[in-house]
């Protein structure tokens, strides 16, 4: 039998999404530079999805070509375009990008509330010039996470100030801190952040996972049972150390 050449798998990648709201050649380049300067490491060679769903007005072919060119020049890697109009779709493919359908859940800034609409009317340029800050507050849980319960901190860190019981599961895209005994499962960096860590004051976990790599209870028993500990990823293995 012939050797198997490949395997097909489904997976999810982390990518930056740029919600394009308005466009002007000069402003776009200037604002992109400014944004990248805030976190050059983060944006370096980062995969980028262009979201046109919330673009006001009609984007021309040349404008889209220019946007993609500027993004490449600034070190981003545009990989796909989401929510493009049927007219633009050929241009998108011509640029070597995948064309994705618009997201089902529209972003929250659609002016459903009159208050937001008012703000936009007062300073229309400002809303475009000021990209929303990316800082996300951590999710803080003050009550015990009981058996059968699941807590997920999407896009941020998770702080649990009580016990995580056996049979409970805590997940975060970022770090996980547990200030009571950790007896359940803790999964940090569930969207693939290999720098995520798990910190706890009393390690009795069933399982600790970082970015999909995990250690089980038996291993933890040998290393740091009932002690304050933290877990982090080194290459492809999880290191657990007493704090």
């Amino acid at each position: 039998m012939a050797k198997v050449c490949f395997q097909m798998k489904g997976t999810a990648f982390t990518a930056v999404v740029m919600d394009l709201q308005a466009y002007s050649a000069d402003l776009f380049r200037a604002q992109l530079k400014q944004k990248i300067d805030t976190a050059p490491q983060f944006f370096n060679a980062s995969p980028l999805v262009l979201n046109l769903a919330s673009f006001e007005g009609q984007l021309e072919d040349e404008q889209l070509e220019h946007i993609v060119a500027v993004c490449r020049e600034e070190g981003l890697q545009p990989i796909a375009c989401r929510g493009a109009t049927p007219e633009l779709r050929y241009t998108v493919m011509g640029l070597g990008l995948a064309s994705l359908p618009a997201a089902k859940t529209r972003s929250s800034e659609i002016p459903a509330e009159p208050v937001q609409a008012k703000v936009k009317q007062v300073e229309p340029e400002q809303t475009v010039a000021e990209p929303a800050p990316v800082v996300r507050p951590s999710k803080v849980i003050t009550k015990p996470v009981r058996s059968g319960q699941q807590v997920y901190a999407e896009g941020c860190d998770l702080i649990v100030m009580a016990a995580v019981s056996e049979g409970a599961e805590v997940l975060a895209d970022g770090h996980i801190h547990v200030y009571g005994p950790l007896r359940g499962r803790a999964l940090a960096g569930v969207k693939g952040d290999t720098n995520a860590r798990v910190f706890c004051r009393q390690m009795e976990a069933e399982l600790v996972s970082i970015a999909g790599y995990f250690v089980m209870n038996e291993k933890l028993r040998e290393l740091c049972w009932k002690e304050p500990a933290h877990a982090f990823l080194e290459g492809e293995s999880i290191q657990v150390a007493v704090i």
Binding site: P144, G148, Q149, G167
Partner: peptide
């Protein structure tokens, strides 16, 4: 004890 833990979770949710 584990079942009680579960029911307390249900009580609080």
């Amino acid at each position: 004890v584990r079942d009680s833990d579960r029911i307390i979770g249900i009580l609080q949710s």
